[in-house]
């Protein structure tokens, strides 16, 4: 039985390089998640409001982002806008723009959903107790919304992490690209390295996303009334 390439990972700095690649993907995910959550909260509050025009605009935005594969959006921003408007955009900026644009829409929809899922009786009861509008929101609506929202936004973050693997397609050197480079460089000494290296990348994503998903499931269960 020939070696399946696990040894290649421990040669030189290979494993550290792989982790660096993972960090590149993680950095894009983290920045995009942060932007998405902040803008998404803002958008969700606007969407839950009564203004029909704002609702319509966000609806169109949301459906447009939802129906297009993220890869197409990435191509439009990275190749399309740079050509049409003639600006320079690094791959990382393009990635952050696209994933934030998409994440904001999804987050906005989650916030809207959480806000309108609070039964009207909660507002009425709080008012009946003599609370003013600010207290109603602060002590009754907000805590319930946040509880519903946190597990859902954690799941959105894992989706963003998984989707950032696409940045390889616009030439960013992230974990998959590094894996390919390592395999290429060791083609002669270890022709089967692809198995071990890709298996490790597979596991890396799992090790990152699985605990986050579990945390979301745990919180959801704990906070369910």
């Amino acid at each position: 039985m020939q070696s399946l390439g696990i040894d290649v990972l421990f040669k030189g700095k290979n494993f550290a390089r792989l982790l660096e690649g993972l960090w590149v993907a993680a950095r894009v995910s983290l920045i995009s998640s942060a932007v998405s959550i902040l803008l998404g909260i803002f958008m969700g509050i606007l969407m839950a409001g009564k203004n029909r025009i704002i609702q319509g605009i966000f609806r169109v935005y949301l459906e447009t982002v939802r129906i297009m594969p993220q890869m197409v959006l990435l191509f439009i921003v990275y190749f399309g806008t740079t050509r049409v408007f003639g600006w320079n955009l690094s791959a990382e900026y393009a990635a952050v723009i696209v994933f934030s644009f998409w994440g904001t829409a999804e987050m906005g929809d989650l916030v809207r959903g959480a806000l309108i899922s609070i039964p009207k009786i909660q507002y009425d009861s709080a008012r009946a107790l003599g609370m003013d509008e600010k207290s109603v929101f602060q002590y009754v609506i907000l805590p319930q919304t946040v509880r519903r929202l946190i597990p859902l936004s954690i799941n959105l973050i894992t989706r963003i992490i998984k989707t950032t693997s696409l940045i390889m397609m616009i030439g960013m050197v992230e974990v998959l690209k590094v894996a390919q480079q390592i395999i290429e460089a060791n083609r002669r000494t270890s022709p089967n390295a692809a198995f071990g290296v890709f298996a490790v990348v597979f596991l890396m994503y799992f090790i990152v996303c699985w605990p986050i998903g579990r945390a979301a499931a745990y919180l959801e269960k704990r906070w369910a009334e």
């Binding site: 693997s165 696409l166 998959l176 395999i183 089967n192 198995f195 890709f198 298996a199 994503y205 699985w210």
Partner: peptide
């Protein structure tokens, strides 16, 4: 499979499986 991207899964199936 829910916690890994399709891209990584495809790379594994297409590039790694032939090695075994």
């Amino acid at each position: 499979f829910r916690n890994t991207p399709l891209l990584v899964q495809l790379f594994f199936i297409y590039f790694a499986l032939p090695k075994i």
